[in-house]
């Protein structure tokens, strides 16, 4: 997956971002001040940088200038329109305001990576290969036929793998709107996915929460 630079002086938040991005399969490098970040960008190659705006040493705006063609997402406590616009004008690809939800962070990182084509749009685990571009799934080299909603559900689970998704969240992502109270739909589709791809061990039910694909 992608190699991501996290620049955030607040250690707890830096670690939080790292833990979550590693869960969905990214590799992370951490910098706790602006100058270290500048050194790292000069020496290494990244697919994405996640930047705090207010940093000791060089600021987030300084670093984004040094990034050149590497996409960047700002993470900041200032959620005002003016700050948002300033960040986007400076060349940021997206903007996340603290406090943020993990799923939001993952989704935005994913969106930016897909937009910049830094990741191959397919995913493999065990003997299963999922091609997101062609919307096809292969198991042991053989194509498994999935209904469109089943495929979307699988995609949502893969993109947020190792994270529990509530039924409501899945309804929101896959069915694109809230099915009030009809979370049985999710359960039915999950059962079908498990059966068709033999995912009983991977696609876990999380107690009182939802479902999690553990890879």
């Amino acid at each position: 997956m992608a190699k991501i630079l996290i620049v955030e002086d607040e250690k707890s938040i830096n670690n939080l971002i790292k833990l979550n991005l590693e869960l969905v399969g990214h590799t992370c490098l951490q910098a706790f001040d602006g100058n270290t970040a500048l050194e790292l960008t000069a020496n290494g190659r990244f697919d994405l940088a996640i930047l705090d705006v207010m940093l000791p040493g060089a600021s987030g705006f300084d670093i984004i200038g040094a990034l050149k063609d590497i996409p960047a997402i700002f993470v900041t406590a200032k959620g005002g329109l003016e700050d948002r616009l300033r960040g986007l004008r400076a060349g940021a690809d997206d903007y996340i305001v603290k406090p943020f939800e993990i799923l939001e962070l993952v989704a935005r990182v994913d969106a930016v990576l897909r937009r910049t084509k830094a990741v191959s749009d397919s995913f493999e685990f065990d003997d299963i290969r999922v091609d997101f571009d062609c919307k096809r799934v292969y198991k042991s080299g053989e194509e498994i036929m999935l209904k469109p909603k089943e495929f979307d559900l699988l995609e949502a689970l893969i993109r947020n793998r190792n994270l529990a998704l509530t039924r409501e969240k899945l309804l929101n992502i896959v069915w694109d709107f809230a099915y009030e109270g009809d979370s049985r739909t999710v359960d039915v589709h999950i059962q079908k996915l498990r059966k068709k791809l033999s995912l009983e061990d991977r696609l876990k039910t999380v107690y009182k929460t939802g479902y999690r694909l553990e890879v």
Binding site: E10, N20, L23, A77, E101, I102, N162, R212
Partner: peptide, 26 residues
């Protein structure tokens, strides 16, 4: 007020983030 918002958001982000992490991640 601006500073206070910033100062409150930082610990809040950590608390919310780690709680969510405990809830959702294996």
């Amino acid at each position: 007020v601006d500073n206070m918002a910033h100062e409150l958001r930082t610990p809040l982000t950590s608390i919310q983030g780690y709680a969510e992490y405990l809830e959702k991640a294996a």
